[in-house]
Amino acid sequence: MESYVTPVLFQLGGGYLFGLPVGFVADSIGATVGAGSAFLLGRTIGRSFVTSKLKDYPQFRAIAIAIQRSGFKAMIIGGFVMSVVLLVCVTKVAKAALDKALAENENIDSIVASPELPIVAETMADLHQPLVIKIDPSQEDHVK
């Protein structure tokens, strides 16, 4: 979990500091350069190190031979299987979270059915500024 939190925080920070368009482009370029650098280092410098550490394990040699013979098929099939597994897991987690939120907020129908929402929108949003949502405190009767 921790390895996913840090990049997300950097992406949010980039969007906040530079605004939406520039932050998006900067984050995209940074993620692409970082992934490419990690791949190239793994293929060049890191490959000999990992190979030397794993040469005593016959299971890893068998996997390396299988990937060398038909690696593209193994990457495609493995990627498809992992995508399906992750899709099922994310769907289950999201459904459980939604069910829990709906159970905690049984009076959600009265809030949704109200014709007036308590959010006050300002005039025109500037995409170069951070997103800020203001809630009008004068309409506290919607909580009842």
Rank of each mutant, 00 (worst) to 15 (best):
L17A: 08
F18P: 00
F18S: 00
G19S: 03
G19Q: 01
P21V: 10
V22P: 00
V22H: 00
G23I: 00
F24I: 12
F24N: 04
F24L: 15
F24C: 10
V25N: 09
V25P: 05
V25F: 12
A26N: 03
S28W: 13
I29T: 05
G30W: 03
G30V: 06
G30F: 05
A31K: 08
A31H: 05
T32S: 10
T32V: 11
V33W: 02
G34E: 08
G34I: 04
A35V: 09
A35S: 09
G36I: 03
G36W: 03
G36K: 01
G36M: 04
G36L: 05
G36A: 04
S37Q: 05
S37C: 09
S37N: 05
A38K: 08
A38D: 06
A38Q: 10
F39N: 04
F39Y: 06
F39Q: 03
L40E: 06
L40P: 03
L41G: 03
L41T: 03
L41H: 03
L41K: 02
G42W: 01
G42M: 02
G42K: 02
I45V: 11
I45D: 05
R47Y: 02
R47H: 06
S48C: 08
V50D: 04
V50N: 06
T51F: 12
T51K: 15
S52A: 15
S52L: 15
S52W: 15
L54C: 12
K55S: 15
K55N: 12
D56S: 13
Y57W: 15
Y57F: 13
Y57K: 11
Y57S: 12
Y57D: 14
P58C: 01
P58V: 01
Q59Y: 14
Q59N: 07
Q59C: 07
F60M: 10
F60P: 00
R61P: 02
R61H: 11
R61C: 07
A62V: 05
A62Y: 07
I63G: 02
I63H: 08
I63A: 13
I63F: 14
I65W: 09
A66I: 03
A66T: 04
I67P: 00
I67A: 04
I67Y: 13
Q68F: 04
Q68T: 10
R69A: 06
G71S: 02
G71R: 00
F72M: 11
F72R: 11
F72L: 12
K73D: 09
M75V: 14
M75F: 13
M75H: 08
I76C: 06
I76H: 03
I77F: 11
G78D: 03
G78F: 00
G79W: 06
G79F: 06
F80H: 05
V81E: 02
M82Y: 09
V84N: 06
V85Y: 15
L86M: 14
L87R: 07
V88D: 07
V88M: 11
C89H: 14
C89D: 11
C89W: 14
V90G: 02
T91L: 13
T91V: 13
T91P: 02
T91H: 14
K92Q: 15
V93K: 13
V93P: 02
A94W: 12
A96P: 04
A97V: 08
L98I: 11
L98D: 08
